[in-house]
Simulated scan of single mutants.
Amino acid sequence: MAIIANATVQTFPEAWSGEVTSGKHQLITDKPESFGGQDKGLAPYDFICSGLISCTMITLRMYAQHKEIDFGAFRVEADFNANKEGKEWIERRLSFEQELSDELKQKVLDICQKTPVTKTLLRSVEINTSII
């Protein structure tokens, strides 16, 4: 067994707020004002979405480098959704500045389903991916 990530959170005096440290990096976590926080930083589900889209971007860039493909600039977004019945899912969207062939679009979608964070989340949450 190997540790692949580590983070620590230290509370701030304000309710719900704290400093997350991972390695030499610091981030602020908080809840939105609508949930009683001060909205000083990312909420917990924002971190989930951030991890997913970061991993997606890195994996696609590694694939492009390996295959000598130039995707150009692109953007990855994610929304974490929940309904009243308790179902949770993530909508992930990719947009590319340059046009991709239909074949390359399908390859990108296939790769997105195989990123390490996607695989981890798929064990417990459905992830729908689209290119916009």
Results as ranks from 00 to 15, higher is better:
Met1Gln: 07
Met1Ala: 11
Met1Ser: 12
Ala2Glu: 14
Ala2Met: 15
Ile4Ser: 01
Ile4Lys: 02
Asn6Ser: 15
Ala7Gln: 08
Gln10Ser: 15
Thr11Ser: 15
Thr11Ala: 15
Phe12Val: 13
Phe12Arg: 15
Phe12Asp: 13
Glu14Trp: 04
Ala15Pro: 14
Trp16Pro: 00
Gly18Pro: 03
Val20Leu: 14
Gly23Ile: 09
Lys24Val: 05
Lys24Ala: 09
His25Cys: 06
Gln26Phe: 10
Gln26Ile: 03
Asp30Arg: 14
Asp30Cys: 13
Lys31Leu: 14
Gly36Val: 08
Gly37Glu: 09
Gly37Pro: 03
Gln38Arg: 15
Asp39Ser: 12
Lys40Met: 04
Gly41Cys: 08
Gly41Tyr: 11
Leu42Asp: 11
Ala43His: 11
Pro44Ser: 06
Tyr45Ile: 09
Tyr45Asn: 12
Asp46Lys: 09
Ile48Val: 11
Cys49Val: 04
Ile53Lys: 08
Cys55Asn: 07
Thr56Pro: 00
Met57Tyr: 06
Met57Ala: 12
Thr59Tyr: 04
Thr59Gly: 06
Leu60Asp: 07
Leu60Phe: 03
Arg61Ile: 04
Tyr63Gly: 11
Tyr63Pro: 01
Ala64Leu: 03
Gln65Ala: 11
Gln65Lys: 12
Lys67Ser: 07
Glu68Gln: 15
Asp70Lys: 07
Ala73Trp: 03
Glu77Tyr: 10
Phe80Val: 06
Asn81Arg: 10
Asn81Ile: 03
Asn81Gly: 02
Asn83Tyr: 00
Asn83Cys: 00
Lys84Gln: 10
Lys84Gly: 01
Gly86Asn: 07
Glu88Pro: 00
Trp89Met: 09
Ile90Ser: 11
Glu91Tyr: 03
Glu91Lys: 03
Glu91Met: 09
Arg92Gln: 05
Arg92Pro: 00
Arg93Leu: 03
Leu94Lys: 06
Glu97Gly: 04
Gln98Trp: 10
Glu99His: 08
Leu100His: 13
Ser101Leu: 04
Ser101Cys: 00
Glu103Ser: 12
Glu103His: 09
Leu104Gln: 02
Leu104Ser: 01
Lys105Tyr: 01
Lys107Gly: 00
Lys107Met: 07
Asp110Cys: 10
Cys112Lys: 06
Thr118His: 12
Leu121Tyr: 07
Leu122Glu: 15
Ser124Lys: 08
Val125Ile: 13
Ile127Ala: 05
Ile131Met: 07
